[in-house]
Design a protein around this nucleic acid. Sequence first.
DNA 1: GTTTTTGCAAAGTATTTGCAAATGG
DNA 2: CCATTTGCAAATACTTTGCAAAAAC
Lengths: 143, 143
Amino acid sequence: MAVEKYSRQRESIRKNLAGRRDHPTADMVYLDIRKEFPNISLGTVYRNLSLLAQLGEIQKISVSDGPDRFDGRTKPHDHFFCKECGCVLDFQLTDTDNRLQRQAGKGFEGRIDGQTVQFFGVCPDCLKKQTGKVHVSNENYIL
Amino acid sequence: MAVEKYSRQRESIRKNLAGRRDHPTADMVYLDIRKEFPNISLGTVYRNLSLLAQLGEIQKISVSDGPDRFDGRTKPHDHFFCKECGCVLDFQLTDTDNRLQRQAGKGFEGRIDGQTVQFFGVCPDCLKKQTGKVHVSNENYIL
DNA sequence: GTTTTTGCAAAGTATTTGCAAATGG
DNA sequence: CCATTTGCAAATACTTTGCAAAAAC
């Protein structure tokens, strides 16, 4: 695979991911793209998701209990995994990146290129269903 | 699955994981246990790894490029993934846990139960092969 | 004796791949 | 035209599961 050539399908996949925040699986993307390209195959979706991830234009997120999920956000950020509904939310931790990397790298003779924090718990919606509490906005959680 | 009953196979799996630091896959554990129980099946290994992970006695680590890996360490810690050789190393970030969780939870109306940091880069051994540099010990990296 | 666990094999998911036809440049 | 991408289907990789026999208690 030498030079990348344009393809309508890949462009559609790229836009689809850029326009959503729900960290879909390959299959979810496939179902969506089929509305525009009824004949697209799941294999093509997988191929393009892999390619885009390699190019750093999207991010692949592996979770322990289901298929991989994909994230259209390019800039580094963190993720929250809800153990109730399985949803994945974005977090942006302010200013901790350098601190973390500096602390971890101190005396480590390998090279650290990047890092992400994975949070686990119960998302606002699921917690609300359990307790009846109200959901308010906050500064780290990115809608 | 009401009460847990002892089994020699499960005990062997538990001990195997406790005695190694290389974050093996289910198959690697299987090959090892077979030395002691030549008839053990891969299914049994998977069943017990799942069970032990549920009980919190081991940890399951999902990586984006290969099968799941397992970690016998019970207390919370972080992981480093080498993009060259695929190895997984343990990190113990001193005292950042509370800071991270506090910062992320500020104003977040869900519940955060825990978190781990994933580092990506090149491990000491691979870097050494590339540059010829020497490997020294450090304070965060756990041998 | 009753319940849990095992080994085996088959099934289930998720993802990748080979290949001829279609598309892009 | 030549290189890349596609759709399709088959193949692969990983993990789970049904069931009768064995082990644990």
